[in-house]
């Protein structure tokens, strides 16, 4: 062997020696499943393991066992849930264990640990799971049965417009236990076409919180754009209006109003022109876009 060849081989082996040994999914899961390993080590193994790329059944079953075992430390179970959730994105590879995963999550959804419970319900709700929706609705109707805080339950139910949550959200929006719960209830209702009058009222009510009015503007734009555009013009002319509400209103007018009518709306053109010169940055930006589109 030449000298050059020898040195190349030795440097290669040196690099190999320096690099940490890449652990297989099997060995990582062995550590993760072992009660003898420390919690940190187990969590680290679960964070490192790539379940979808491995021979899924054995490793996924181990991860599912950890997740479903309430004698395991919560941190380890949480790490197992995250690993499984990552694996589930490979829909085809994960299909054979999907059923078992969902069954385990349903069990964890009523776990004494709040963080685990919320995470499990989150995954189930995103899958539009009937069990999770039923539990969340029960909790909203009877706080004694609530598995998660009201605002979290509303947020999770909003993943599915068919979840039958509009009635309960309306009730909570009118008599909220907290500001957060009210905002989540309104966010959920923003997909409900029959709530347009409620959002119109909130948008025009200057005594309402800025966040609520901003949310109402976006909701009204989504479910009743014509109604919103009519109101948006008034808001653009109101000098006392919040900049973000003005910006939202002006953006809606720019993108969705009748271009011909806008081009002939002299007072509006004049007003937006002045906003494009002198107004908060957020409004100025939208106003300039408007002028670029409609200036003659």
């Amino acid at each position: 062997m030449s000298k050059k060849g020898k040195s190349a081989k030795s440097s290669k082996s040196a690099r190999k020696a320096k690099a940490p040994a890449r652990r297989t999914a099997r060995s990582l899961m062995a550590v993760a499943a072992s009660a003898k390993s420390g919690v940190k080590e187990r969590v680290a193994s679960l964070n490192e393991v790539t379940l979808a790329a491995s021979d899924q059944d054995a490793n996924v079953t181990r991860a599912l066992d950890i997740l479903g075992n309430d004698n395991e430390p919560a941190e380890v179970r949480m790490a197992a849930l995250e690993a499984l959730q990552t694996a589930s994105f490979s829909v085809v590879a994960f299909a054979p264990v999907r059923g078992e995963y969902l069954a385990t999550l349903r069990k964890v959804a009523t776990d004494p640990n709040a963080e685990l419970r919320e995470s499990a319900l989150g995954v189930l709700a995103r899958n539009k799971d009937g069990f999770a929706q039923q539990k969340l609705l029960e909790g909203l109707q009877d706080p004694g049965k609530a598995l998660v805080p009201t605002e979290t339950a509303l947020s999770l139910l909003s993943f599915d417009p068919h979840a039958d949550a509009y009635n309960v959200a309306r009730r909570i929006a009118s008599a909220p236990p907290s500001d957060d719960a009210r905002q989540e209830a309104l966010r959920l209702l923003s997909a409900d076409a029959t709530s347009a009058p409620l959002f119109e009222k909130l948008l025009l009510d200057k005594s309402e919180k800025r966040e609520v009015r901003q949310l109402s503007a976006a909701a009204l734009h989504s479910i009743a754009p014509k109604k919103f555009q009519k109101r948006a013009r008034e808001l653009v002319f109101d000098p006392s209006e919040y900049p973000d509400i003005q910006a939202t209103s002006l953006a809606a007018i720019t993108n969705f109003s009748d271009p011909e009518a806008l081009a002939n709306d002299e007072p509006l053109l004049k007003r937006v022109d002045s906003l494009s010169e002198k107004s908060p940055a957020k409004v100025k930006q939208v106003a300039r876009r408007f002028m670029t589109k409609f200036k003659r």
Partner: peptide, 18 residues
Amino acid sequence: YYEEPVSFERYGEYALSQ
């Protein structure tokens, strides 16, 4: 792709195991 355990034992019951 929609596989999950189901229970036919009682009305409205969701399966919690396989």
